[in-house]
């Protein structure tokens, strides 16, 4: 049993965070803030009667896009430097297990993501103080669910890159998975359509159940029908669902990473 495993994972996670800061990944936040502040001024003119609603929708869309970008850039930085430039070889010669290494990378990226999402939410919160939106707990749960889905994306991307051994392939597959994750609603209606053949139904059902269902985390589109606060049981369920997928993805990733020869 590896001693101080948790400390090693945390050290790797901390290193990922430092690397991301060094590569100025958080500059993305300035673009986010600029886009949002500029956008909010335009919205006032363009969407009379629904200014608050449009502002918050634009803000959440930006948060999701920039969050996705943060995950992809962080993964690009760590993978490019460690795999493509072969610095990974130095790390794995040290007494760090491959499991700790991969988990550390995942937690590091999650840390970068959570930091980015928190700052973006603070910017949004600051702008809502101008009185356009009356915030409640639902408005906090939306980015929380968004972060969960992005953490799932991070786990999947790390795993796919590990399996694919190639950065672009991994990122392309991961992006496709992100799109498929939002398509589940349509897949279901195709499956339920009596005209769909048995073979197609089986194949689609496999995709439907095995691909991550990102629409479950899409609370931003459900914000206006919540009729009060979001059901805590639902939030708990989707959290467990995210834990499942992160666990499963990282498990596969670790297995693939252990078999890998450098």
């Amino acid at each position: 049993m590896e001693k101080h495993k948790l400390l090693k994972i945390l050290a790797i996670a901390q290193n990922v965070l430092k690397e991301c800061i060094r590569h100025k990944i958080f500059n993305i936040l300035f673009i986010f803030a600029g886009a949002l502040i500029g956008g909010s001024l335009l919205i006032e003119e363009l969407s009379p009667g629904a200014e608050g609603r449009t502002f918050i929708n634009v803000a959440y869309a930006n948060m999701e896009l920039f969050g996705f970008l943060t995950v992809m850039l962080s993964i690009f930085i760590i993978t490019f430097e460690e795999v493509e430039m072969r610095t990974l070889w130095l790390t794995i010669t040290k007494p760090v297990s491959r499991t700790s290494y991969l988990l550390g990378k995942f937690f590091g990226i999650s840390l970068v993501l959570l930091l980015t999402m928190s700052v973006m939410f603070l910017v949004v919160f600051g702008l809502t103080l101008t009185g356009k939106v009356h915030l409640n707990i639902n408005y906090l749960l939306v980015p929380a669910a968004m972060s969960l889905s992005l953490m799932m994306t991070a786990a999947f991307t790390i795993t796919l890159i590990t399996i694919a051994t190639n950065l672009p392939t991994g990122i392309i597959f991961s992006s496709l998975l992100f799109i498929i994750g939002h398509l589940t609603e349509h897949l279901k209606s195709v499956i339920e359509n009596p005209q769909t053949g048995i073979a197609a139904k089986t194949a689609l059902a496999l995709v439907y159940y095995l691909a991550p269902n990102f629409e479950l985390f899409n609370l931003k589109d459900k914000l206006y029908l919540a009729g009060g606060t979001f059901d805590p049981y639902y939030i708990l369920q989707i959290t467990l669902y995210a834990v499942l997928y992160v666990f499963a993805a990282l498990y596969i990733g670790i297995k693939a990473f252990k078999k890998k020869e450098f």
Partner: peptide, 13 residues
């Protein structure tokens, strides 16, 4: 398909 249903409703508005 994009998960931005409310946002696109705003744009159409």
């Amino acid at each position: 398909i994009s998960g931005f249903r409310s946002l696109i409703a705003d744009f159409l508005w």
